[in-house]
Design a protein around this nucleic acid. Structure first.
Lengths: 155, 155
DNA sequence: ATTATTGCAAACGCTTTGCACTCCC
DNA sequence: GGGAGTGCAAAGCGTTTGCAATAAT
């Protein structure tokens, strides 16, 4: 997403909530938008440290939470007990296929999922807030360790 | 699930894989089967400690992993960065609705999900191994904090 | 006897916390 | 000037690891 537009959204959100407009928050936003793919809070903190941003770890953690709240980032969890973030907001809704051999994460998109989710929420009497859908399997890439002919033990 | 049957499955699995049949593994299995609802490895360790089982933390962690591999338990992750286990193997496949206000976890079951997962795997060229599907929302229970009339801030 | 498994405590990695300092409003 | 936000370091928590002791085969 274009940084200028994102800054606008964040500014708006902060004003609306009576939160303060601080340079650190925009630095975290910029770094997050520049990060390719999914990242953990600490990943971003390290990257920012290397790139001579000057923002503390606590602020990175807090701000990412904030950015998720105003939908500039999406929070993900791929079953590794780590919170990951994703910045590709303008992409249409998508979910993830995770290869259990090589760990690569592939996106897919199927609008039936959202329909199903809405239907289930209303049937069960829940006010929808979000969902998480991950599929685990072995991918078909040649370089994927699960596909070497020599290597077929389970583990 | 009936403990005797579960013991049989574990014994079989251990023999097949040339793993050793140790009393600790069956103690962890018993304690896990007796645990109501979803639990983390540490929860189980503490409970076993209180009930005078004598199994170390490391063994509890290792054995739960093992029990998940032989499908006596299911591994779950509800987006809290904690691995949880569930023992209700005989229940039919189900997924979870998590209330973002009161934290309660409700199960639901919809066979279209599995169909969708299979279809996506084959379309994307993945060999299916598992999936994780959680829906987040506000439940309609009166006691749920999100439903008190007085309390309508976001947070 | 061999070696997988255990127990223990320490280390690990991600995240949160406490508190003094800063600086946005 | 008041209080939200920050930085820092330490603590927290679930989990993993290293290694010596134990026990299943």
């Amino acid at each position: 997403m274009d940084h200028k537009k994102a800054h606008g959204i964040l500014t708006e959100y902060l004003k609306k909530g009576n939160n303060r407009i601080t340079p650190e928050r925009f630095q975290v936003l910029d770094a997050a938008l520049d990060y390719e793919g999914h990242f953990g809070a600490d990943d971003l903190y390290i990257k920012m440290k290397n790139e001579n941003y000057n923002v503390s770890r606590a602020t990175v953690y807090n701000t990412l939470e904030l950015l998720a709240k105003c939908h500039l980032l999406i929070k993900r969890n791929f079953g590794e007990n780590i919170t990951r973030y994703e910045n590709e907001i303008e992409k249409k809704n998508h979910d993830h296929l995770i290869c259990i051999s090589c760990g690569k994460i592939k996106e897919f998109s199927d609008q039936r999922i959202k329909t199903l989710v809405n239907e289930i929420c209303s049937k069960m009497g829940y006010e929808y807030s979000g969902y998480s859908f991950n599929i685990f399997g072995k991918c078909s890439k040649e370089e994927c360790p699960g596909n070497k002919k020599s290597d077929n033990n389970e583990n």
